[in-house]
Write a protein that binds this DNA or RNA. Sequence first.
RNA 1: CGGGAUGUAGCGCAGCUUGGUAGCGCGUCUGGUUCGGGACCAGAAGGCCGCAGGUUCGAAUCCUGUCAUCCCGACCA
Length: 582
Amino acid sequence: MNLRYQFIGGRIMKASQLFYPTLREVPSEAEIASHQLLLRAGFIRKTSAGVYSYLPLAKRVLRKIENIIREEMDRAGGQELMMPIIQPQELWEKSGRWSVYGDEMFRLYDRHNRGFALGPTHEEIITTLVDADVQSYRDLPLLLYQIQNKYRDEIRPRFGLMRGREFIMKDLYSFDVDYEGLDVSYKKMHSAYRAIYDRMNLNYRVVEADSGAIGGNESHEFMVLADSGECTVIYCESCDYAANVEKAQCKAADDIKSKSDLMSIEKISTPGMKTVHDLVTLGISEQEVLKTLMYSADEEIIAVVLRGDRDLNEIKLKNFLGAEQLFMADEASVRERCGAGFGSLGPVGLKLKIYADLELTGMRNFSCGANEDNYHFTHVNMGRDFVPEAVIDLRNAVEGDLCPVCSASLKSIRGIEVGHIFKLGTKYSDAMGASFINANGEEKAMIMGCYGIGVSRTMAAAVEQNNDDNGIIWPIPIAPYHVIIVPVNTKKEEQMQAANSIYEELIADGIEVILDDRDERAGVKFKDADLIGIPIKITIGPKSLQEKQAEVKKRWEGETELVPLDQVVKTIKGIIAAGMKK
RNA sequence: CGGGAUGUAGCGCAGCUUGGUAGCGCGUCUGGUUCGGGACCAGAAGGCCGCAGGUUCGAAUCCUGUCAUCCCGACCA
């Protein structure tokens, strides 16, 4: 393999000149490993909440990630372009998202008071662009991508690069003549994404996802597995099923159907009891309680019922209802409609549409609010005491649920969403009027897909997954430098001579290497080398030098290997080649 | 947006209760001794105590406002 695989810029490779200000102490604002380490190791500095400067080491990592992405996008037939960050209001009004996007969108106004958005995404621009210059089916399919800064005024930026307000993203948009074409483009991207994360040596999983506000019907997320992840992934060890918890289906669990006889409904006094947990003090378990939630779905108040210990999945509810807006009803209007406040609600006698979770099918004789403050019913049964509008899958899947595909027990794990691919269909091509003339001379809307990768977030995710007490451990394919050479004492000429000659040889072979020529004590240099996470460290010290040897240590392993000086370059090349392929 | 916390030197913090002109550790600079996992000694530089008002003879400290940052939550009754 050719190690001279990419030149990512930067000629300064001597630590004495490199700008990587390391910190001995943890900045107090940083909570998670990637944030702390990227700050401490001199990769990033905060400019304002959720907005960061990327220092030279970080820039190199970003370039490597970008280059891997570029190669795979190009291989899949993508063409790179670049679109503006500043986007005119009128484009966003055309798609209807100027109002829909809300506070998440940074807005600014020019001297003529014309509105602009700082692009949170680029569907509007690209669709307009393609509309203007693509008229014929002969020009399709088209796969266009860019790597660009994006802006989202997050409610709460957090965790450093994980959830920033300015971030780097690769976004590709596909334009096809029909849905079969979209399937082809989607599959190309799916495998390109796998190739990208494989090449970066990240431990990830592809999961089924909800396509959310962007619209469309098929969607996958690429999750880098890490405890600090903001997403919960539900997956099956017996088959390939994996889904974002927002999407994960719950099976109707026939086998847990209660066999007890139906008992008569009974009203009990429950003074002051408002929560499911309160009822537990009466000897009723959370599994025997029926929880009633009131929602306002496009102005209509509805009731949702599910088992007391379960969590409602609002996305499932929203999708089922096809509602534009869904939020919990306020207590005043609930009291007006139901005659009781939160905590005393139940489905019995309710004159509202009731949506019941699938799991309730298997429940008998449960307890719920009586729609009268301080009273509950026990021995309530669905079908007899109330009839729901629909019985559907409404709850969040949890570990131990049955796999919807193979019925094995599901597991749950945390993940960082680093990639997301969508089938969009014609949502934007319709809105922006992006059409073409097909072979029969008919005008048709282009069928679109969009495919994103959080570049800066991927860098953080890589750190999150690859670190130890001493610092970062970069996977070789995205490490800022492959090798760091540490002469134990820069004042000893023979050490510097040996270090320099290895340094020159490695550079000549296209290997990216830092020579730590600083007049520092060995301990300081070792600590910094570990902190910034360079995968391979070569130590030149008096002990081994006497034997004409250097010490080679992999950052991810404990042992040091003694290598004859004239074999060092060969050894290093071997380690890198193995690390690039892994 | 709701709740909580914090703003004092590049970083980490003390001082604030009980007002009296700012301190510690790390880092930085100079000199020396050291030199294989964040050395030691001596010296030095560095602060509109977030900002704006107010109280007071006097404010980092008390009061009001404001801004910023971080954490939790944002509707599971």
